[in-house]
Simulated assay, not measured.
Amino acid sequence: MERVPIEVVTKGLETTSDKIRALAHAGYLRTEIAQLLDIRYQHVRKVLVDAGIDAGLQRTVELTRSTDIIEAPASDREPTPPAVLLEAGFSRVGEWTLDGDRLTLSGRAPAEVGVYAFILDDEVVYVGVTQNGLQVRMEQYRRGHAGQKTNARVNALIREGLAAGHRVSAMTAVPASFDWNGLPVDGAAGLEAGLIRLIQPRWNMRGRS
């Protein structure tokens, strides 16, 4: 079923929040609403969560072998686009590629301690933190040593994605640490924990990196 055009849905609505709610009710996904209104994904999510609206989490799927239409159930985990991280201060590093059996990353990650994310096409699928430097961590994933379970598992996921024709890229951030009431707070570890809780990336196992 064809959706009502955005111009019709938002006609006469003055506030961005009203437009967000109207578009969600009209069947537009949260990621689409953010792009159409040129606003941050978090803004869309907050407005809909505050209003108790989960319509933006559902997508209607039409089967090619049948005239039946099935609707995917609403889920707390909606795919998060990389724009959410870019707007918050993450930087693109490059794309993973396969040259024969050799896995390589087209860019060079920072040497500092920080947070990293892997993107499958247009979805953030993995978030992690490293205390050994981002360059070192990317090299560990590139090698995917069998004796290091996480490295080997994520290396295999990257390879599977590339073999299936998907784009897999990497992004990084180097957040500052700070003091809280005189106590040290690790900015990188805190950011990783918050992102995993918010995004629930599907390559992270049980909410962990």
Rank of each mutant, 00 (worst) to 15 (best):
residue 132 N to G: 03
residue 47 V to G: 03
residue 72 A to H: 02
residue 44 V to A: 03
residue 178 F to N: 00
residue 60 T to V: 12
residue 14 E to D: 10
residue 14 E to L: 12
residue 174 V to S: 05
residue 184 P to I: 14
residue 109 A to D: 02
residue 17 S to A: 12
residue 173 A to L: 15
residue 133 G to T: 07
residue 142 R to M: 10
residue 95 E to W: 01
residue 207 G to H: 05
residue 15 T to G: 05
residue 150 T to C: 02
residue 14 E to M: 06
residue 162 L to N: 11
residue 59 R to P: 04
residue 71 E to I: 14
residue 83 A to I: 02
residue 114 G to V: 07
residue 107 G to L: 11
residue 179 D to H: 10
residue 16 T to L: 12
residue 136 V to E: 05
residue 127 V to M: 04
residue 152 A to W: 00
residue 24 A to S: 15
residue 20 I to P: 11
residue 27 G to Q: 04
residue 103 L to D: 07
residue 42 Q to R: 12
residue 51 A to K: 04
residue 16 T to R: 11
residue 118 F to W: 10
residue 110 P to A: 11
residue 157 L to A: 12
residue 4 V to H: 00
residue 127 V to Y: 02
residue 79 P to Q: 07
residue 122 D to C: 08
residue 84 V to K: 04
residue 94 G to R: 12
residue 113 V to M: 05
residue 184 P to S: 08
residue 19 K to T: 13
residue 171 M to I: 15
residue 202 R to Y: 08
residue 188 A to Y: 04
residue 121 D to H: 04
residue 87 E to W: 06
residue 132 N to R: 10
residue 58 Q to Y: 03
residue 15 T to N: 05
residue 37 L to M: 02
residue 54 D to V: 01
residue 62 E to L: 11
residue 124 V to W: 01
residue 69 I to Q: 05
residue 68 D to H: 08
residue 200 Q to H: 12
residue 167 R to I: 08
residue 83 A to P: 01
residue 100 G to T: 06
residue 174 V to I: 07
residue 9 V to T: 13
residue 97 T to N: 03
residue 134 L to V: 02
residue 104 T to E: 14
residue 57 L to K: 15
residue 198 L to R: 10
residue 125 V to A: 14
residue 144 G to E: 04
residue 175 P to M: 13
residue 52 G to M: 05
